[in-house]
Design a protein around this nucleic acid. Structure first.
Lengths: 333, 333
DNA sequence: CTGAAAGCGCTTACAG
DNA sequence: CTGAAAGCGCTTACAG
């Protein structure tokens, strides 16, 4: 038999679709117990599964969220998506996953697709230059929340961030207190505002401490390869380095591998500090010291905030800042 | 202004919705160039984004796929999802991500949700005991493809697998050839059929080689913690062990950490062999030797097969087997 | 306590 | 070459 519909149930129960809809959605109390039970029982017998696309067309709600991010394979993002999906599930939402691979074009394509699918909102982790994409969301009145990566924009938006200034300061001060003076800094790609924010913070704090050296600043992607390549560049300079501060753990992972392969001992010959505190950072060898961002909490709060916005519980644009924290392990001494 | 609809375009262009729908979907050629262009232009001016839920209600197609898996944070799954999403995107499908955390109940909840959302098909990586869930899919005539983890079932289904028997044999023979005779084997949880298949393969090949020892078989979850705990149990036996063969890299990662923390040198004191070849396995220290499964290809083929089934290009149940491969790195000597 | 009817925004035979 | 109309399966004022 074909999939049962409301009408099928209504016919069998000798009532109207209205009534069936009402009881199945627990809408009103004024339905006799008898008909309620009959409806429930028949719906059970038929293994009725409602067609929510029909419902959505009528209600304009889909109970689904879009999540756009650069690359799910990156542990930082997979941990965050886990948090988002966990939270969404509790709040009765599904999640559509979109990998942008940092392409503004792909972001745009996904955004239009998500809009056409009538998602109730989107969580957006930008790959860079996403201002125009934000406008599309805005023009279509789709609620959204930015996570982790600021977007340069004239518009206001809601977002969950972890203070980059503070994170970098904590890291540099820690290295400084350990006696490090020649600290190489590997920033992220300049198309991302967080890269520039972290760089700015690095410049400020190192200048304040009197250890600023422009030649010690390197740039690369937030990837394992980016960590490898930037480390190669660092070693190629021939400058004496006490420590390398990578602005992501994934970079640090690649960097450590490169150092180790080239005969350096960590932290004996060089100290390494990461950023993010992804779960595997403590399973590396040696265990990675890092500036932790509360990744799970960020994803969780982003999802909660988005749902609050969808439900009209948050009217103004709301920005939440979380605190970074130093995690001492074995790569700095 | 509110979101533009087909009717809005039709009014402005002085034509019927039918015609607008036709040209926007490139359906027929018999529309005058003049009206076609007018429609296209107006649709552009209005930034028209079609409401695909309305379309879906009419066509019974949503161009979205459901993916159910245990835990996106596990690199094995995030790599696979990446492959699935990449492929889906190329074929014009979106992906709804569902983490089951190995709960049969959660799988069931998600499956019903996906059915109610009219997904065109689902890719299913079971967390165990999923036969009943398969039946729900079947009863509702939702195409699905199983990946990696077999499901004990009376029904036939389509799936993509990598030969477990062969993988275990390759691994054991490699260790044997390296002179290992006391090989501990850490199998996965017995609720998963692949755990039992791999165990069976282990038993067969070790018996054939004359090195079978029941006391060397351990069981745990396919997680970092599972690797840690099983390794502790192994060491607690006090039995002399030459090598440990973990049936997943994630387990091996935890196991190596435990060994290292307890003063063992790898591979000097003990050799370690993993299974899967997740990307980070080559960034561990020492680099993990492992039996590779073609993770990306598995995800890719699963998605392609599913879409072929959806489009009626594959009528019978189709099962594809891929080949495992030994990756020699530094944890076995 | 219950139902008839309109409407959500598309697609698709069918007719002309 | 173009359009009127029915239909997809729900929800929701509104009426009684």
């Amino acid at each position: 038999m074909a999939k049962a519909t409301l009408t099928d149930i209504a016919k069998r129960a000798n009532v109207s679709k209205t009534t069936v809809s009402m009881v199945l959605n627990n809408k009103e109390i004024n339905v006799s117990e008898a008909t309620r039970e009959k409806i429930l029982q028949i719906s059970n017998e038929l293994n009725y599964i409602p067609n929510t696309v029909a419902r959505s067309l009528s209600t304009k709600k889909t109970e689904t969220l879009g999540v756009i991010l650069p690359d799910i394979e990156n542990p930082f993002f997979s941990e965050m998506v886990k948090a988002i999906e966990d939270t969404a599930e509790k709040l009765n939402y599904n999640v559509i996953l979109c990998n942008s691979y940092n392409s503004t074009k792909k972001e745009e394509k996904y955004i239009k697709l998500l809009i056409s699918k009538l998602v109730d909102g989107v969580i957006f982790i930008s790959g860079g230059n996403s201002e125009k994409n934000l406008n599309i969301l805005d023009d279509n009145k789709i609620p959204f929340v930015i996570v982790d990566r600021y977007i340069e924009s004239s518009k206001k938006y809601s977002g969950i961030f972890c203070s980059n200034k503070e994170g970098i300061e904590i890291g540099i001060k820690y290295l400084y207190d350990k006696g490090k003076r020649n600290i190489a800094f590997v920033k992220g790609p300049s198309r991302l505002k967080i890269s520039e924010l972290r760089l700015k913070a690095y410049e400020n704090i190192t200048k304040k401490l009197g250890i600023y050296n422009e030649a010690l600043i390197f740039e690369d992607e937030f990837t394992i390869d980016g960590g490898i390549m930037s480390t190669e560049k660092i070693l190629d300079t021939g400058i004496k380095i006490d420590a390398i501060f990578y602005s992501s753990d994934v970079m640090a992972l690649g960097g450590m591998k490169f150092l180790l392969r080239n005969g350096y001992k960590i932290p004996r010959d060089i100290s390494v500090l990461g950023y993010d505190n992804i779960n595997i950072s403590m399973f590396l060898e040696p265990e990675l010291s890092t500036v932790a961002q509360p990744i799970y909490t960020m994803g969780q709060e982003a999802c909660k905030l988005l749902v609050d916005i969808i439900n009209g519980k948050v009217k103004e644009h709301k920005v939440i800042f979380l605190k970074p924290e130093l995690i001492e392990r074995d790569t700095v001494r």
